[in-house]
Simulated assay, not measured.
Amino acid sequence: MTTTTTDDRALADLQREHGPALFHFLLGLTFGDRQRAEDLLQETLVRAWQHPEAFDGPYESMRPWLFTVGRRLAIDARRSRLARPAEVSDAVLESAPGREDTAESAASALDVRKAVRTLSPEHRAVLVQIYFRGLSVGETAEVLGIPAGTVKSRSYYALRLLSRNLPGYSSRSSSVSSGSRAAASATAA
């Protein structure tokens, strides 16, 4: 294949004769990444087109020249990838926790503290044991010296009161009429 200019037919012959072997060689260099191997194959063939003097070389086959160019391109591409930060796929970004707004978080904490202060000491004591100290209903009953049923009802009504006192929070159970709320509050205490 000795020519002084690379015409389309010479390049087509080059690709047909050496393309599959070069592709498999580049596939190994890219650790099985077909897309990168195809990109490197195309770039290698472009280099052959840009350097017609390679066709006039002293060797019988262009394959060694193509493999050398392909290997150097693969090395350059790898160095280039390693020189910049790693790419993150969309799946990783979607699964990453969102960055919470600290001002919003602080405002919410203040709202919760204000709402908890509106509770009676009995209701507050039950919530502290169950939600802040992580005790079970039985353990809370033992610590506070009250029956487990009372712990359950106080926590239920305390949470309902909190849902009414927290801005922007609505609960399914807050649709109970205010008359039955007053009766329930009286029996819960």
Rank of each mutant, 00 (worst) to 15 (best):
V128S: 03
V128G: 02
V128E: 08
Q129Y: 02
Q129D: 09
Q129E: 14
Q129K: 04
Q129R: 08
I130H: 01
I130W: 00
Y131C: 14
Y131L: 13
F132K: 06
F132S: 10
F132A: 13
R133T: 11
G134R: 10
L135P: 04
L135C: 14
S136G: 15
S136T: 13
S136M: 04
S136R: 07
S136K: 06
S136P: 12
V137K: 07
V137T: 08
G138A: 09
G138S: 14
G138H: 11
G138Y: 07
G138D: 14
E139K: 12
E139M: 12
E139D: 15
E139V: 05
E139N: 14
E139S: 10
T140Q: 08
T140D: 04
T140S: 09
T140M: 03
A141T: 03
E142H: 12
V143G: 05
L144G: 11
L144I: 08
L144Q: 10
L144P: 10
L144V: 09
G145C: 05
G145D: 03
G145R: 02
I146T: 09
I146C: 04
I146G: 05
P147M: 05
P147W: 04
P147I: 01
A148E: 15
A148Q: 10
A148K: 12
G149D: 11
G149S: 14
G149K: 08
T150R: 12
T150Q: 11
K152C: 01
K152L: 06
K152H: 06
K152E: 08
K152Q: 14
S153G: 00
S153A: 02
S153N: 11
R154Y: 00
R154C: 00
R154V: 01
R154I: 00
S155I: 00
S155N: 03
S155V: 04
Y156F: 09
Y156I: 04
Y156C: 07
